[in-house]
Simulated scan of single mutants.
Amino acid sequence: MSTPTKKRLTTSAMIASFADPGQPTSSAPFGHALAALAEQDQRIVGLTADLGKYTDMHVFAEAHPDRFFQMGMAEQLLFGAAAGMAEVGLVPFASTYSVFAARRAYDFLCLDIAEPNLNVNIIGGLPGLTTGYGPSHQATEDIAIFRGMPNLTIVDPCDSVDIEQAVPQLAAADGPTYLRLLRGKVPTVLDEYDYEFRLGKASVLRGGNDVVFVSSGLMTMRALQAAQDLAEHGVDVSVVHSPTIKPFDAETVLRETRGDRLVVTLENHTVVGGLFETLAAEMAKVGEQQRVVPIALPDRFLDAGALPTLHERYGLARGSIVSKVLAELA
């Protein structure tokens, strides 16, 4: 008699995906990675603020119900409870939407978690423009809010590979972390580039003589796509992926940006306070004076609508990147 195969849990059908048609994806990579890690480490616990199925935490909840805590719609309580668990030696992963973590529960994260440097891992759904629900749900400024918080590590993963490899490293890291979660059907991109996620490190995914893309998050996927398109125009593009925004791997990135190539940053975040300003500050520190062109969200509240339409409108789409670079080189 054959043993029935356990069905891999997926995510809610209500969650929009930014994956291209026909692109390989992995369903709920964060939830599955956390559940797998918990099999090996009994200290791992999961908490959420009434958003289990919408942050892929429901996968962990089903696999480890005795280590899952539903805190209800109370983000400050979520972080306070996670801090208490970390104080007694557990390793909490606490999930909510990025807007609620950054805007609503900032003080609890700062004073309960970051100031005592506790190993609490904040999982923030809907970072940047990954939802069409408008300003109440679009965390376009979360990195800007969190970059000034001492002790907090900020990770902006590109795809399912980044997320799956990041989870155990976040658990092992000293101090608190904030992961900009890509949820639902997440593209699988970096497996084609001999890539390995290393917390705090950037990676050169491809070399190029004309343009240097420095990117994070889902914009690394778009950077790689745009680099392929630009090659058809005779433009040779290097792509540097920086999944850790803080601490920033200035050594690797600045080694690639030196010279006379056009430097372009690509991020799923407002142009204020994110990757663009991080890189510009590091270049200023060492006296690099070349211009950096930002591809980022504008410094304003964004519209609601369908994700493909919004990515076109705000310049995050593949074709928009190609057009901007060609205009800069003209």
Rank of each mutant, 00 (worst) to 15 (best):
N119S: 15
A102F: 03
L307H: 14
P243S: 04
Y178M: 05
V286N: 05
L266N: 08
K53H: 13
G200K: 14
Q290R: 15
T96V: 14
V155L: 03
A144V: 11
I295H: 02
H311R: 14
S216V: 06
K7F: 11
H241E: 15
Q165W: 08
M149D: 03
V161S: 04
Q169C: 09
T309N: 04
L152Q: 06
V88T: 15
I245G: 06
P298A: 13
A223H: 01
A231H: 15
R8G: 08
D174T: 13
E256N: 15
A94D: 08
V325A: 00
L90M: 14
G259D: 11
M14N: 15
A284S: 12
A49P: 10
A101R: 00
G208S: 01
T11V: 15
T131V: 07
R67F: 09
P116M: 05
T5M: 07
G200N: 11
G208F: 08
D20H: 07
V120N: 01
G234T: 07
A306W: 01
Y106L: 10
T140H: 05
F108C: 10
R206S: 06
V88L: 01
E267N: 09
L90P: 09
L126Y: 13
D249Q: 14
V322Q: 04
L51A: 03
P135W: 08
T11I: 07
A38N: 07
S2Q: 11
G46R: 04
R67D: 04
Y195T: 05
E87I: 04
T130F: 06
Q228G: 13
Y133C: 01
T188A: 09
A202E: 12
Y97Q: 03
V293N: 02
G148D: 04
N151I: 07
L205K: 02
V240C: 10
A227H: 10
A231I: 06
A13P: 12
A223L: 06
I295T: 02
G175D: 03
P294G: 10
T48Y: 14
E312Q: 06
F79A: 09
T177D: 01
L118P: 07
P92F: 08
S323F: 00
A61Y: 04
K7Y: 06
A36P: 07
L218K: 11
N117P: 02
D107R: 01
D229L: 10
P127E: 04
G31S: 12
P298W: 11
E192G: 09
R318S: 10
V155N: 00
A101Y: 09
D229K: 10
Y54V: 15
G273P: 01
T309C: 00
T140R: 05
D142F: 04
T244N: 07
D159A: 03
D112P: 01
G259M: 02
G259E: 03
P176H: 08
D66N: 03
S238F: 05
D107Q: 09
G274H: 07
L266Q: 09
L329M: 13
P187K: 05
D174E: 15
D299K: 14
D210Q: 12
H137A: 02
S17L: 02
D303T: 02
A38T: 12
T177R: 08
P4V: 10
R180S: 07
L230T: 06
Q138D: 03
Q76Y: 06
V286C: 01
D20F: 14
A327S: 12
V155H: 00
